[in-house]
Amino acid sequence: MVDIAFGPERGKRPDLANNREAYMEMVRRKRMYGGLLLVIFVALMASGWMLADDRNAGGFWQGLHQVFEFPSEVFAEAWQKSANLPALFWKHLPALIETLNIAAVATLIGALAAMALSLLATRGLARWPRMIPVFRRTMDALRAVPEIVIALVLIYILGGGPVPAVIAIALHTGGALGKLFSEVAENADLKPVEGLASVGANWSQRMWLGVIPQVAPNWLSYALLRFEINVRASAILGFVGEGGIGHDLKLAMQWGQGRYDQVVAIFLLLFLAIVAIDRVSDHYRHKLVKGH
């Protein structure tokens, strides 16, 4: 028995009679492994940065002192034309609202899809238990596709506008939230579900009345977090594809000098919107999860 517990090799057994020695031995080995990992990590980082620097168009050291050149140039011009800013805010507000709408609609549709997918993919709750792996793999695939891929392909088919971005973000959100929702639903108490089943409730009634009230706070909190992420994604998709404040920013940037006041106005709008949304969603998430 002892042999099985400590392994077949005699040499590897800790010498329990001299426990101080055994402990120091263990610590030394742990430190050695830790040190080795650290060396490998540092080597990876160093060679990685060197390689990345090598393949970059401009070098790191040449670029470093230019980092603030462009922002200062932009802000200097905007400062001269600061009288224009309120009007520009007003002008670009509809684009900001469009970006927020894209994120909100996509989060809403994605969350609704994730609700259905997650319940169908949770052990103990699924409508068709045999189909659980199918729904799980569906969510994995939805999560794996970057938004930009779907958005660009849809722009080609549907033409420009916000709808390709909405579909792209909604699909990704469905996959990402579905996984988180399903993790929450796994921990749900099954007693209400059994109670409802005993009075003859069908599957959707069991889910709606037995599971959803339990998981709603956590689900809402995840959905709010996702909304924050989706606002950023929607701005980026606007920049790469079409629609929303990202697109306005791209146009103003492409114009370059002379429209830097617009760049600053858009930047400030986006910044304030993101900070405000982060704040509000943080507050409500704390309230939802911790109950105060």
């Binding site: 990345a52 393949r55 970059n56 168009a57 670029g63 050149e69 990202g246 920013l249």
Partner: peptide, 16 residues
């Protein structure tokens, strides 16, 4: 998005 734009002005296109 903004960080990316600012940095690509300074360092040019590329993985770094």
């Amino acid at each position: 998005l903004i960080w990316t734009i600012i940095l690509s002005r300074a360092f040019g296109p590329g993985p770094m």
